[in-house]
Design a protein around this nucleic acid. Structure first.
Lengths: 232, 232, 232, 232
DNA sequence: AATGAATGAGCGTTCATTCAT
DNA sequence: TATGAATGAACGCTCATTCAT
């Protein structure tokens, strides 16, 4: 996506349902469907058009470039996750421990969906070579960590801001990392209940007990690590 | 990569460095370079050839299809990780706690390299739509967990096999998940020392103290989770 | 031509001459021109495009594969012969002998055209290795023999169905066989009038006088034939 | 075969079996095998080499171009037919009628072999666009007609030379024409015995009874023929 | 609002051919 | 006598994109 010319806002500005709105939504839905089903390489204007029962020129009519379409798609897709955690964090009927574990369970549960299992590795790969995707995905995760941060601040009030944010980062990373192993149709999908229990214990205990000194001590290793041998 | 016809091993066995061997290595090196630099989409036979200063027909001379080339490349790349952990696990001069933390530090250190940060998300994305890559990556991680399993067995002998394997899975997933956040040129790269400390504490404490009951209790939530809203 | 997905009929039915219809016709005309001029090997999408003054992508726009194009072409080409004989057979102003000889003259006359001389040997060669072409050509000749069969039935009513069909086959084969010798720009082209006379006499006499016993007697040879020596 | 540079004679000159002779024979055998099995398009140096268990460079070592190889192959292949008829024609123990029918049976029998059924249509197609093949095939058929001519001269001595040759041509063409219909694995293969009987009667009767006047009368049609409609 | 037609670039692949070894 | 390495051209095909209608 080398030419990040925004197109999205045009669409967003049109309140209600302009005639073309329905088609735009259909285009984005089909594009997402392909992305999830077959990966980014398979997302072609032709295939999107085919699934919308229009010609590929029609897709170009709504998006002047494929990049613009993809950007619009990613906005839509990531917006959905925006408030995912806030509801839990703000749920006054639960203790902070409960809320923390609820977030863990929520994320790990979401990870087993086809949608999330397939989508996020694509995003991670795209983000590595596309600054626009990189920024978008980064923003999304930042918002997720904001929620975690609030809860962690309550569970371990003595932890300074910077350290707390890094703790939240590790929590988030821990959970995201299970995507490739226990996601949709992955070998460990059936073990997800156990994984949730293990993650809950590991992360909750850590969050509650970790100190600034623990974090600053660095790794426990005094000896130099053997490095991964290079290739080629 | 639908036609997994191996090519590599035959050629590798020719031993020494026949003249053509050097070119094969160059081809794979360049292919990997492009994969890391620009992603799978950018890996074309012509670009590989360009970087090798030959015509694209020369690449086809060595690999009768792009799939065969990619398979050979992935074998080579993943073979490297094969014995990565064993050295540590078998290091008799360290305690098992030390070995466990050494593995964590080793992996997280490796994650900050450009090579690993860029390569693995590509593999995860490919694996979602390509059974061959899926199997290859799965095998690699399985071997990694074998090493973890040995150490965990010593740190927590009362944990039954199945539970221990799931614990190892979570440990591995936790570490892999940091790739997207604290890998090469990522926003949190500079915080990797802290992340190593946090991960060491969280995972070591968990591994040492977790019980079968903890794992079987499932998540701590009794109430149904709010679901992620669908898209489209 | 391994994937016989019809394309033609759909397009043909769009009736009239939509703008694109003209281009399709031009594409098929140029493809046929090349086939006749230079043989099947020379029929490439690029050469077709060149003769149409468009880029090769434009040809691919109309035909999603070269096979589809070739199939469409062959349908068109062979359809032309469909009613070729019927007009004569149904011509009530002629005796059946006249009609029989008219068919012979019609076919042998057609054989001297560049179109037929060049096209049919290509089809025979293709049919040997391509089931689709095989079936198409077979159908075409079957229809041709149907016309002959009607006339032969009148000229020799006592001949049973199966024997009559084989007689028609030999008549048809006899005529087709002159293509390579007396076709367009062949050494014997100028002798075609004589050939027509010879064929008329040989085939008409045979058709009128042959009996079931003649046919069932088999070859007149009692001794084993010397076999053609094998090669290699 | 646009560059007819002879290479064959080089080979022929080496008497006995020079070491490379065996390889040349193998190359030509394999080339013929492919030609018969899969058609001219499939005859590639690579495939020939593969079947000879050598590299394609080795084939180029013996034949400096593919055309030279094909020419050599065709010489070899057509040489075989050279004396095919002479043995029969010169068989003093048979009457001329018997010899004539024996030739018919011989040719039609040969036509049912895979070798002949597959080879000749390829040659006819090639001859249309390749003067070298054209000349070669033409020579071969000329020799075949020489044999027929001798016998026809005995069966119908009053026929002048030119007319007799045209009669021989039609006889030869009649028989060749059955290749596409009753050859190897063709729909009418099982009817070949009947075809032999029909051909024997039709052609023998004609040869014995036809007169110069029959031939010069031309076709029996007085009215103009409806022409095959043009394409495109 | 959408189509139909076409472009131009690039893709993976195959081929005959060359040539030093 | 043959290989191994490489070339250069061509192939069928796909893609995003443009634009008049």
């Amino acid at each position: 996506m080398p030419k990040p010319e925004r197109v999205l806002k045009t669409r967003e500005r049109t309140g209600g349902y302009a005639p073309g709105q329905a088609r735009i939504i259909q285009i984005l839905d089909m594009a997402l469907e392909i992305l999830i089903e077959s990966g980014y390489r398979a997302v072609t204007l032709r295939e999107i058009a085919r699934r919308c029962n229009v010609r590929s020129g029609a897709v170009s009519y709504y998006y002047k470039s494929k990049d613009a379409l993809m950007q619009d798609l990613l906005y839509r897709v990531l917006d959905v996750y925006e408030d995912m955690f806030n509801q839990i964090v703000e749920d006054e009927s639960q203790s902070y421990e409960e809320r923390f574990c609820a977030i863990i369970a929520l994320i790990l549960d979401d990870i087993t969906t086809k949608h999330t299992t397939r989508l996020f590795p694509e995003l991670w790969a795209l983000a590595n070579h596309d600054p626009f995707v990189d920024r978008l995905v980064d923003n999304m995760y930042q918002r997720a960590r904001d929620s975690l941060n609030q809860v962690i601040g309550r569970l371990n009030p003595s932890l300074p801001e910077a350290e707390r944010e890094t703790v939240a980062l590790f929590v988030s990373a821990s959970l995201e990392g299970t995507t490739m192993f226990a996601g949709f149709e992955k070998p460990w999908t059936v073990r997800m209940p156990w994984v949730i229990a293990i993650a809950s214990k590991a992360l909750l205990d850590m969050v509650k007990t970790i100190t600034v000194e623990d974090i600053h001590r660095g790794g426990t290793l005094s000896r130099p690590l053997p490095r991964r041998p290079g290739i080629g």
